[in-house]
Amino acid sequence: MSEIAGTKVLIVDDSGYMRQVIRKYLEPQGFVIVGEAQDGWEAIQMFDELRPDVVTMDISMKKMGGIEATKKIKSIDAAAKVIMVSALGEARFIKEAIKSGASDFIIKPFAEERLVSSITSVIKKG
């Protein structure tokens, strides 16, 4: 637990509900939610400002989607850790995101353990 306590997380999703879910799952575990973005454009800005340890990224959002945002974030910081969060039918996009440098992916709907384990794994193993 100590290894993940204080890990800074940026949540990116256009659904308020989803952002709530992720926050609800992570805060009790000691993660610190440093920000919530509603689209890719905001995500990039907030990433640059806040430099979180991990970003959870939704794939389909208006204005700028998760793939492009991931690419741009990786270009700001090549070591950035981005985890794609997506519905099952978006396999092609998930693969695209992985190619762009996403560290892991989670399929909605997901259990709390899954989210936590994914972030933990990404932090520890890069």
């Binding site: 659904s15 308020g16 509900y17 989803m18 519905a87 099952l88 039918g89 978006e90 396999a91 909605k108 709907p109």
Partner: peptide, 18 residues
């Protein structure tokens, strides 16, 4: 609150398209 239901629609729909 209709917003969570949007996610539900998303998830259900994706199941069928997938």
């Amino acid at each position: 609150d209709l917003e969570p239901l949007m996610e539900v629609t998303n998830i259900l729909g994706a199941a069928y398209t997938n």
